[in-house]
């Protein structure tokens, strides 16, 4: 059993994905999905959406596993999504999943969590002023989204919060998972960032259901 409440998320811009025709090929599907998942994609009314939902689930789950293991190998096929999309076996790590699909807006967003509590999550279009600054802009947008999300829920000023990524040798970019800090000290709330195409997304390990008085959402001690 995993004591800490850890979360991951991944957003896929379905319009950007559709603009990359290679990704619809059978070999892409075979590289990402096991046989059972390939069958489900093949039988789906919207195969592309089904594929990207599985892809996002695996990416979201990997972000959790990367917090549990120092340098996990990421092979999409080793992450097996249950047929009901409620859980995933992430290379031996069982996780809960939440899938949101907005076909009108053209996105799939999946949240993975070590607990059954649905965490706080948001998906937004990357603001125009961010899009004009290519390098790092989506990452900055996702950071701002998550700090605002957490600040609002905890009654803090968003400006007092920041998201840092401590160095982690061997990681794909040399940095570890994001950590939300206040005054330079970890807040104790696990967070995850994602961006793709026009979209930014984020999730925080705070329960999503709101109390009527909007209070009482303390950082998780686990």
């Amino acid at each position: 059993m995993i004591a800490a409440w850890l979360v991951g998320n991944d957003v896929v811009d379905l319009r950007a994905a559709a603009a990359a025709p290679r990704s619809g090929r059978p070999r892409f599907l075979a590289r990402v999905c096991d046989e059972a998942e390939q069958a489900r994609v093949g039988a789906a009314a919207e195969p592309a959406t089904a594929l990207w939902t599985l892809f996002a689930a695996k990416e979201a789950a990997y972000k959790v596993v990367a917090k549990l293991r120092p340098q996990p190998i990421f092979a999409h096929r080793r992450y097996r999504v249950a047929a009901d999309h409620a859980t995933i076996d992430a290379d031996g790590v069982p996780l809960a999943l939440w899938v949101d699909v907005d076909l009108a807006a053209g996105w799939v967003h999946v949240v993975a969590s070590t607990r059954d509590d649905r965490p706080l999550a948001a998906v937004e279009a990357l603001a125009d002023h961010d899009a004009q600054v290519p390098a790092g802009a989506p990452g900055r947008g996702a950071r701002r989204l998550v700090t605002a999300l957490v600040a609002a829920r905890l009654g803090l000023a968003a400006g007092d919060l920041a998201i840092e990524r401590p160095p982690r040798p061997g990681a794909w970019d040399g940095a570890g998972p994001p950590v939300i800090v206040r005054g330079g000290r970890p807040l104790g709330v696990d967070v995850s960032l994602s961006h793709d195409g026009r979209l930014i997304a984020g999730v925080a390990a705070l329960v999503a259901a709101s109390r009527p008085d909007g209070a009482g959402f303390a950082p998780d001690p686990g």
């Binding site: 990359a20 990704s23 892409f28 590289r31 892809f55 190998i73 990421f74 092979a75 999409h76 080793r78």
Partner: peptide, 24 residues
Amino acid sequence: ARLVDIVIEIEDKFGIEVKDDDAD
């Protein structure tokens, strides 16, 4: 996602198999 595409292209171009562990 594009990295998956790139690995497939490398397999095709060089006639090799890139296993999941290698790709990672």
